[in-house]
Write a protein that binds this DNA or RNA. Sequence first.
DNA 1: AGCACGCCGACT
DNA 2: GTCGGCGTGCTC
Length: 844
Amino acid sequence: MDLELTSEPTLFVEVLLPVPIPGTFTYRVPVAMNDLVQKGVRVLVEFGARKLHTGIIADIHNRPPKNYQAKYLLDLLDDSPTVNELQLKFWNWMAQYYVATPGEVMKAGLPAGLKLSSQSRIQLRPEFDIEEALDLEVLSDKELRLLRSLEQEDSIPYEQAADILEVKNPYYIVKELVRKEAILLFEAVKDKYKPKTKKKLRLNPIFLETEEGLEQLFASLGTKQKAKQEEVLMKFLMMVPVLTNPASNEEGIDKKELLEGGTSQVSASSLTTLIRNGILEEFEFIVSRFEEDEYSATRYQDAEVKLSEAQQAAESQVLGYFEEKDIVLFHGVTGSGKTEVYIELIKKVLDSGSQVLFLLPEIVLTAQMVVRLKKIFGDLLGVYHSKFSDNERVEVWKGVADGRYQVVVGVRSSIFLPFENLGLIVVDEEHEPSYKQYDPAPRYNARDMALVLAQMHKAKVVLGSATPSVESFYHALNGAYGLVQLKKRFGDAQLPEVTLADLKLERKRKTMKEDFSSVLLEQVRNSINEHKQVILFQNRRGYAPYVMCEDCSWIPTCPSCSVSLTYHIHRNQLRCHYCGHSEAVPKSCVQCGSTKIRTMGVGTQKLEEDIKFLIPEARVQRLDQDTTRKKYGYQQIIQDFEQRHIDILVGTQMVSKGLDFDHVNLVGVFDIDRMLNFPDFRAEERTFQMLTQVSGRAGRKKDKGLVVIQTNNVKQTILHKVARADYEAFFRKEIEERKQYHYPPFTRLIKLSVKAEDRDKASAAAGLLARELVKKLGAKRVLGPQEPVINKIRNHYLMDILVKLERQKVNPQKVKEIIREVLGELDGDRQFRKVYVNIDVDPV
DNA sequence: AGCACGCCGACT
DNA sequence: GTCGGCGTGCTC
């Protein structure tokens, strides 16, 4: 036989693994799999001595690695690719741009449910003879004990060995037994994703084959407990017309439905007997985790949305821009009806056969927008949300891959879904910082990545906002993006009136009640008397940001972070919002022994308490991270507020997002000065956006709403711009400052955070880094190192370096290469062991 | 990032 | 001796 002709080529694959090591890993393809390997397929590989990993095939070739022996692929997990080629390209791009590894991007992009988990198991070697080993006296007591237990089982989990042996770490004993060739240690893999099933029942079809079948059936029942069994059967036959409609039997009936449904309950144990005797058959049916709701039958063609003239004009402007530009910034004031325009655009894209991605910031998602879209797009719409379980995410992933979902509404991570042909991406509230991921790497901004993804799909993008980011508005004015504006509220609703409450003055006159100015409190009372609703905005959760000893000013701080501890009232404890540390409130001062420990400052909990005390008849509810932990917590509160079971909603920025309430006529804003004075070049932008958003909650329909902003400095011009809803005035001033001080959009920023347990080490490493960067980039482009305000988190000291690159002159990818190089040097220096550096490209 | 391996000190 | 803590180096 001619080996040359029959032998198959030896193939190798580049496998992407979810590890933070640069590059892919080369594995050898077993000949039997040669025809089955394809890019994007999940594979099972051994990685390191004992670990199994799920990886993705990124490339296939026939070049054996030079310096090592490639391991074999263990298994292929898919028949068809889980990740398409465009996604692989996208991941790669993202890794380059954000200075991350492809593995880190994979980790962020692939839902956990598509990764496999592995567990070590121990098994007795069948050829090993325990008695013989005993005769030879080569086994210790413990070893023997483990072997005896294994005799009874096929295999046991590794952890169980610890219980059997009554030791903490069975590793050495297990290892010794492996050496003696008594046992095998292997990895069992299980697919984490399990479809959800329902138990269904059908009648054994043999009873339907002949005319007399059913009679025989009743005759064949055992004599014992016959009546009960008959009862079950009768109910079944009433619910399933087996004779007139045999297909209904094929389809079966819910087990639960048979047992509990209808008018009577029937015996579950009789049913079990019927199943055991082969009269009824039980089978499992895969169901979707997403309940088919009342809208699912609707086709979007049927759901008419009437656009106002202004909306129609906006839509045709967007379409007009799309003739020549790929990106349009859609600036529409709160309540101007951007959503209807989005919907019309989406319909058009769907009609052309392309897919649509609708991005929303984190918090809004469960609320009204999804319901609205669901009504229109029915079961073509997939929803991707951070509170979904792993399994639910996998179902959306698969739905997108097989084309069941043509529209997806989702949070930032939905840019990773396996779209084949996107035609449009809508980024609503494009200015929202929650589109940016902080930790872990890749620190990506979903808004920016949406632009990249769209380009790869040759799709269009609409960036929508009532308060566009300075960057986006600048690009729009520059002509890089199209600009479409809606300046009037829908249906002639008026913009709210904005009043400033002068806290300095009120304090002097002693008219403050707790943290409420008399101006605000009076308005709250008015609203309640008129049976209107009120929103109070305080962007700080907890009860008080810190507590303090009245006698010596001692403030409890976190043992691991350089921050004061926040007081939470319900558990009566102090908590760190950075690392989660919590402790009881000290009864007396640690420093001077005084018992006069007072809460300082205001959080949402305190506001809630105060307003309940000041207006006892009002029904008050708090909306923040702490009250919305549960999956539907947020939805529940919003619903209660909508249905007017709540008069006053006290909350963090959660209250400011995309919610339309018809009966709110007052919004109160606390602590805005702290936000304005935040040491960040975006502080004013953030404040303006937040105030505009939260103001938008006041007044709908014909009622003019009122916004009361409490401030210590009524002269701050930004507050007056909010009052006039003058975005463009805000923008003009802001863009001048950005230009003057070289901030985005005129520069690109890269922030390096150096982290080490030792403060001097962090400082020294940062110093070295900065010097090297200055050498290569010039002193003007490197700021710092500077110790951040919060200089210690989780027992690691921090130092920041900011790299500023002029937008026109500098190639940012080159600079990232330089940063990688310099970091490599630091990595090689023994002195800087255990120093970590985070790279944040385009920090927000 | 894990995780194995090796070296060191504490304990039965 | 054995256990377990931590520093170091590697993963196709």
